[in-house]
Each structure stands twice: as structure tokens, then as C-alpha cells.
Amino acid sequence: MAMIEISGLKKNYTSGEGTVEALRGLDISIEAGEFITIMGQSGSGKSTLLSVLGGMNHPSSGEVEMDGVKLYLLNGEKLADFRAQKLGFVFQSFHLIPYLTAIENVMLPLAIVAMKSDAKKEAARRALERVGLGAKLDRLPNQLSGGEQERVAIARAIVNNPQILLADEPTGNLDSKTSEDVMTLFRELNDAGQTVVMVTHNPDNGRYADRTITLRDGMVVQ
């Protein structure tokens, strides 16, 4: 059974100029442990698809089923719980909380989990070591380079061992060398069993993935 099953997914936005069809009936199936990159030009619907997959953007029609759960049949709070338990997010601009240290940022998803403080700290420390930042636990985000911030963001996404990792342009703000390091890291995480769905502009990133889905005007073209 597929880890993610998308069927007949449509998403329309209404603006002053009329209705914009961001996603036009997508049918996608992603197996557990797959590394998928979603590519396409700006406005192709990549980020919309990722937000729908993340349970944060109700589709206009169609269904999204993840790990056997029909996502949009859950109410808002249950959806939040689902995100907390099953999903990890990596954002393009990292979105680290500026007043929290690296380890505190990584511990954020655990702030709402009933765990002992030491266990939380240990989990965060292990996640940071896994992304190669074990020596910079107490740095604030503004004391870290772009690549290091990206790694902290990845550590935050994996600290609670989510089944699915969603990443939106994780290399968009990084130089090519750092981008390669980050993609290698995603590959390693995927090799360790994590399902990765990554939105990216960069065709080079496709070589790290098992499969690339290309969108154009809200439809799968490849």
C-alpha cells in the first residue's frame, strides 16, 4: 500500500481576477521509503501541492491519503496532531526561531510531546549530530551560516522521526557546494527509511531522488 495516495486533487484560488486553478486533478502515488522530487516552473502548483500534502491547505476536491489516513476528513486539531506525529517540514528560508538556540529550535516539535526534558535534549542532540552540527548546539540562528541553518531546519524536521519528510526548495538559498551537501544528507535520511517529498527548481537535485514528478499549470506532465 502506498504511503501517500493522491486522487483527483484539485485546488482553486479565487482572486479579484477570477478563479485560478492551481492544481487540476492530480493522481499521484508515493510508496513508503521513496525519495520524490517535484519540479516545475513558478506557478506550476508545486508549493500548493506540498502545502496540501502537509495538511495545511484544504483541496477544493479530491483526496489525500497518508499512511492509511484520509487527511482532510480530520478536523483542524487532529490534523495538527497528524503533522506533529507523521510529518517533518523543511522550509526554503529555514524559518528557524531567531530567539532559540540550535538545539532549542530542534526541540520545538517536542515541546508539545510528553517526554522528559533530558530525553528531549538527547533526541535533539542526536538529530543535530546526524546533520553534522553536534558542535554548535548552543548557537543562535544568526551565528550560523546558511548551510548550517538549513541543517538545523532538517534536524528539526527529523527529531521526532516522522515517516514523511516534506521539503520546499531546501537548497534555494544555498550555494552549489552546500546544496550538494544538503542533498546528500536528504539522500542519507531517505536511505535510513524516511519518505522524502521535495519541491525543487534545481534539475540537479533530481539525481538524488528515486523519481521526479514534473508539474506544469497544475497538472502532472511527467
Binding site: G54, M56, E77, A80, D81, F82, G88, F91, I112, R156
Partner: peptide
């Protein structure tokens, strides 16, 4: 706004 959005994205409930 962004910070709160991140909290929500990583699974914080409204009550949190």
C-alpha cells in the same frame, strides 16, 4: 506570522 505558521506546520494545536 511566519513563526506562528511554523509552529502550526510542525503540529502545534491552536491551544498551544
Amino acid at each position: 506570522t511566519v513563526e506562528i505558521g511554523v509552529f502550526r506546520a510542525i503540529g502545534f494545536r491552536k491551544s498551544h
